[in-house]
Design a binder for these strands. Structure first.
Lengths: 207, 207, 207, 207
DNA sequence: TATGAATGAGAATTCATTCAT
DNA sequence: TATGAATGAATTCTCATTCAT
């Protein structure tokens, strides 16, 4: 949500929306490359091709930039996951689709993966105030799938979907984190990891 | 390894060892509470009851403090895990013991768990240069158990122990991270989580 | 060379040039008064009427400030000497003009003299990396005069102009140094010293 | 003048005198190598083979160390010059002997020369409070020779011995300074410089 | 007397944020 | 609205000096 005042004129909106996105995207690049603490506002501004001060027209401060970035990305992600699950039949395939989607995120944008798996945890304030609700929506979709599986009898009923989604998230997140921070990473590695992940998770839940 | 020169006299060693530990333990408290970036050397010094400069007699700089802290803790942890596995019979029980031990760490020291799950990931430099080898020893013990299970036919042979240990680590680590950052956490929660974790992991590997 | 980015706009240049000079001139005052090591950036900033951080927009660090100051002054000096020698006829008069010019520097700016004679020698790095080349240009003009004197037969030929210029520089520099650090110094003193210097140097070189 | 209390027992005196000298000589080495500001008390202590604190039993503080060093060296130098002049006949030869002695100091101890020509000027406090009187005694011997030369009619009478000794000192000191800071220096260079120096100075004063 | 660990004042430098243009 | 120069608070680290042993 861009701040500038001429937001309510048509071009104003477009112009600002574009600059807003440019800053967001520059900050993703820089945060992913350097980490939050080592990222300088002036570098982000330079990458975005705007003045340092301009960033403060669009974001309250450096923290707000990270939060906004994360919110915006999670929005995309939630949307993407929803689309990915559409047309997939059966809890088993849906669970696999979830894992594939998640690994796909990392393949499509190492930066995003690095940001989410590494930088998101940086600040407790963050984890506590933002991550939980934002992830809630994301994980809500997992819950739905798990519950549907239990309801349909495909998945065993004696586990907490609530707990299991974190188990699953943790394992996926961790292997992505390792993959991202491995300079010699290849797509094939991640595909193999995905196979094993899906296998393990499926065996863990299947009735 | 304390730096001061009189380290090789008997009292010197004791005195310095004690101060070294005091600083280490103060830094654990502060890092866990504030996170690395937000921790100030002067606060650590105050908590340790020493002068700011004293810290630099024992540690090269703030980074070295974190590294040393982590190394020292991981040493303890590796030792603890080794002991925990002794006398436990069978791969199944050993795998469960691993999970119990890991969760036990969090129960025994929320600070340590917070440090490891949150702060350790702070810096890429860190993850790459230190965490990997240190964790390698830790995870090596997991490998041993998993391989023994495969060899004995108790665990299925068609999964990579190498990948599976990261799946398992990620899931445990993640639930601990959530538990740690939950102000309303209770032991019972973690016990229940442990039950489900062990159940899920066991189903994932059992032949 | 000011660093700020808007240096290439007309007002930008003027504004920055002015601030750059203000800092340079403040640092001359403070360096001369306290010596380099005892000079604090914050005092220089205060004298210049800028914030501490502003100095770092214009200079890389404290050392760079000293170097830049010296370079800028030596540029002026070289230019001044060149002008002083123009229109002076004959090697004898030119040699005297050199001495007068040098003493004139001290009379016109005790600060500059103090800086050059005392602080310049502070750091070996400095002497080696900067002073030599910068002074080379300065002393090059001396060489020219001495060689012309030898060529014209006015000065004796059996001395090395290269060595003599250092003899001459050393003696002038030293008496200025003493004069500068003498709180009871008067112009008259330096005039008398100049007379004797010119006399001695002339006798030393004349054929 | 060593401080320790058992100074009045025979061995006490000897032991302390020895340690005092060891510290002095260590400080000369370190000051000459690093310069005053960059020299650390603990490095001097290490070179001297004593504890850091021990230095403070013998010297009031770091400044006192430099002052004491300088005083002690100047004492040696004054003594040496006195001896060098003994048995030299005639003001001309004595003046040459002064120059040779001075250059000899540099040849015999580059460290001493570096200390005197470079570090002595470091602090105005020094130059003003100490250098002047200490050098006074040293230069007093020069005065004597110059005055004797004037009295005997060998040197012209129309110059101030007072001023001339500084001219002479400055020139010698400067060429030594250059020689000392030239890593490729050779004895031959200095001999040639000495020849030219003596020639120039002699022509400047001779009747 | 000798030691060297402990101290903490002090200083350079960085960088998020502001604000005049 | 956009800029980027200016700011100064804040923090790490150094090192002369002290003092308990």
């Amino acid at each position: 949500m861009p701040r500038p005042k001429d937001i309510d004129t048509a071009e104003g909106r477009k112009r600002h929306e574009e600059k807003y996105q440019r800053i967001l995207s520059a900050s993703m690049e820089v945060f992913a490359r350097k980490g939050f603490a080592e990222s300088k506002i002036s570098e982000i501004a330079q990458v975005a091709g705007v003045g340092d001060g301009t960033i403060y027209l669009y974001f309250k401060n450096k923290d707000d930039l990270l939060i906004s970035l994360f919110e915006s990305k999670l929005e995309e992600i939630n949307q993407g996951l929803r689309e990915s699950l559409q047309g997939v039949e059966g809890p088993e395939n849906q669970l696999k689709a979830i894992i594939d989607f998640h690994l796909g995120l990392a393949i499509n944008s190492v930066e995003l993966a690095a940001l989410v798996t590494i930088e998101l945890r940086r600040s407790q304030k963050f984890m506590k105030e933002y991550a939980k609700e934002q992830l809630a929506e994301f994980l809500g979709q997992w819950n739905t799938v798990l519950e549907a599986g239990q309801a349909s009898g495909v998945f065993r009923k004696d586990f907490s979907t609530n707990i299991f989604k974190f188990i699953m998230f943790g394992s996926i997140d961790h292997v992505i984190g390792l993959w991202v921070s491995n300079p010699k990473r290849s797509h094939e590695d991640l595909v193999e990891v995905g196979r094993q992940l899906k296998d393990a998770m499926m065996r863990a839940v299947i009735a």
